[in-house]
Amino acid sequence: MITRSLLCAAVAGLAVLVGPAPAAARPPLRTVATGLDSPRGLAFGPHGELYVAESGRGGVGPCPAELEGGLACLGRTGAITRIAYGSQQRILSHLPSVAAPGGAGAAGPSDVSVDSGGHVYFTVGLGGGPRRRGPLIAGATGLYRAGPDTAVPAGLGAAGAGSNPNAVLVTGRDRLVVDAGRNALLRVGPRGRILTVATFPRRTVAAPAGLPGGPPAGTPILMAPTPTSVVRGPDGALYVGELTGFPFRPGQARIWRVEPGRPPQVYATGFTGVVDLAWAPDGHLYVLEAGTLLRVARRGPHQVVSAGLTAPGGLAVRGRHAYVTDCGVCRGTGSVVRIDLG
Rank of each mutant, 00 (worst) to 15 (best):
G70L: 10
M1D: 04
A10S: 14
A206R: 02
L195D: 15
G218T: 01
G314D: 12
T325E: 10
P39H: 07
G251L: 13
Y267C: 06
V197Q: 11
D174T: 04
M1W: 04
L67M: 12
P263H: 03
P225Q: 00
T81W: 00
G105W: 10
T310D: 08
G291F: 00
S229H: 09
R40F: 14
P109G: 00
P216W: 11
R254H: 14
I194C: 05
G61N: 11
V274P: 02
A15D: 00
A140Q: 09
E54Y: 04
L294M: 06
A207R: 01
R173N: 14
L309S: 03
T34L: 08
A209K: 07
P260M: 13
P153Q: 07
G139M: 00
A23E: 15
A206G: 00
A311E: 03
P312R: 01
R26F: 09
G328Y: 09
L6Y: 08
R133I: 15
P62K: 13
Y267Q: 10
D282A: 08
R262E: 11
G13K: 09
R295C: 07
L17M: 13
V205F: 01
G328W: 03
V324I: 14
G218M: 01
R173L: 13
G157D: 02
L50M: 02
V18N: 06
A209C: 08
L315Q: 09
R249S: 13
G261M: 10
T3W: 09
G75Q: 03
A209L: 01
G75M: 02
C327Y: 06
C8V: 12
F248Y: 15
V324S: 10
D37G: 07
P130Q: 10
I91V: 15
A307T: 08
T3D: 14
G117L: 15
R257A: 12
Y144K: 09
G129M: 02
Y239L: 06
R133E: 07
Y51V: 01
V324N: 06
A53G: 03
I194L: 12
G147L: 09
G300I: 08
A65G: 15
V124R: 01
Y51R: 01
V287Q: 04
S97L: 03
C327I: 01
A209R: 07
V152S: 09
C8M: 11
V52T: 03
G328L: 05
G162M: 02
G142A: 10
A100M: 13
Y85I: 02
P301G: 11
R298L: 15
R193S: 08
Y121T: 06
H321E: 15
G213A: 04
T310E: 08
V304P: 08
V324M: 07
A280D: 05
E66S: 14
R320I: 00
L195V: 12
N166E: 14
I221Q: 01
P62M: 14
A24E: 15
N166L: 11
P312T: 03
G314Q: 05
P260S: 13
T310F: 00
T141V: 14
P130S: 14
P212R: 04
V258T: 11
V296Y: 00
L293Y: 11
R191I: 03
Y239I: 12
R175Y: 09
V205I: 12
L341F: 12
G245R: 00
N166C: 06
E66C: 12
P215I: 01
